[in-house]
């Protein structure tokens, strides 16, 4: 775009961030407002620096949960950016996205959706259909649709995001597991338990493969252990309890690797419980507790 944030605005931004982090909004806000006034006077209301300053102040308002005020500022910043950078600029997409986030925070999902949609179109146009930033945008769009109960759209968006992450970043990228987890949540909301279960198992198998390189008789993902333990409890009379199954250190591995895996353990555990597979559920829940 050719636009660069002037050094003094950068400095001011850092200062504002520090004040905001300390909760000193009574200092941060007037500082921003004064700078905004100065910029408007010296550079004119439509200058890109004014848009940047509006963004900085919007962040402070956002941190104070003043979403309405923040959105007002971002709308002004949006008009400036559209007229100075063009309607299809990444900065316009980013501003649209953040506006959508602010609307979303206020539960205005219906208003947020078209903004998010436009941000998506810009990113597709500028970055191509398979860029990870497109997947990020799809993720936000899916979430907005989920809040409106538009599950068909949610599935479509998450599936696309998943394909992008898998294709561009590889199966081990944390975004893959995260998106699968989100998609599974969407399935659960619709009562599609089998589909959710498949995804949870995929996540756990992938986490296992990442740690041990393969799945074989000696290296099984945790859900296979859980189901075996379930089977054993059904076929054998438990006297003095089943000996504790050693998970091959798997839980240690998932401990550091990701909170998503932990969530997945608990979610699949809940699904097992729903099916009355209590031993299997306990196995996963225990693993989740250990790895927390």
């Amino acid at each position: 775009s050719g636009y660069e944030i002037p050094a003094r605005l950068r400095t001011l931004h850092n200062l504002v961030i520090q004040y905001a982090a300390q909760g000193r909004y009574e200092v941060a806000v007037p500082l921003c407002k004064q700078a905004l006034e100065d910029l408007e006077r010296t550079s004119g209301r439509g200058h890109p620096d004014v848009a940047t300053m509006l963004n900085i102040l919007a962040l402070v308002y956002r941190d104070q949960n003043k979403y309405k005020e923040a959105a007002h500022l971002l709308n002004d910043a949006l008009s400036i950016r559209e007229s100075t950078l063009g309607r299809d600029h990444p900065a316009v997409a980013a501003t649209l996205n953040n506006l959508a986030v602010l609307y979303g925070k206020r539960g205005k999902y219906k208003e947020a959706e078209p903004l998010c949609q436009r941000a998506l179109e810009i990113r597709e146009k500028v970055l191509g259909n398979d860029h990870p930033d497109v997947a990020k945008q799809l993720n936000n769009l899916a979430l907005l649709c989920q809040n409106q109960g538009k599950y068909e759209a949610v599935e479509r968006y998450y599936r696309r995001a998943l394909a992008i992450y898998e294709g561009q970043l590889g199966p081990d990228n944390p975004n893959v597991a995260r998106t699968k987890n989100n998609l599974a949540s969407c399935y659960l909301k619709q009562g599609k338990y089998a589909e959710a279960e498949t995804l949870y198992k995929e996540i756990l198998t992938q986490a296992h493969v990442q740690e041990f390189g393969s799945v074989d008789d000696n290296h099984k993902p945790i859900w296979m252990h859980a189901e075996e333990r379930e089977e054993m409890s059904k076929t054998q009379h438990r006297e003095g309890g089943t000996p504790y199954v050693e998970y091959g250190g798997w839980y240690k591995a998932c401990k550091v690797s990701s909170p998503t895996v932990n969530t997945t353990l608990r979610n699949l555990g809940a699904l097992y419980r729903r099916q009355g597979k209590l031993e299997a559920a306990e196995t996963l829940e225990e693993c989740a507790l250990r790895s927390r």
Partner: peptide, 20 residues
Amino acid sequence: DRPPANKQQQLEWDDSTLSY
């Protein structure tokens, strides 16, 4: 029948708005 432990999903803010 406990509800599944779904993590609260959050809309993601784009921090790049300040780098243009």
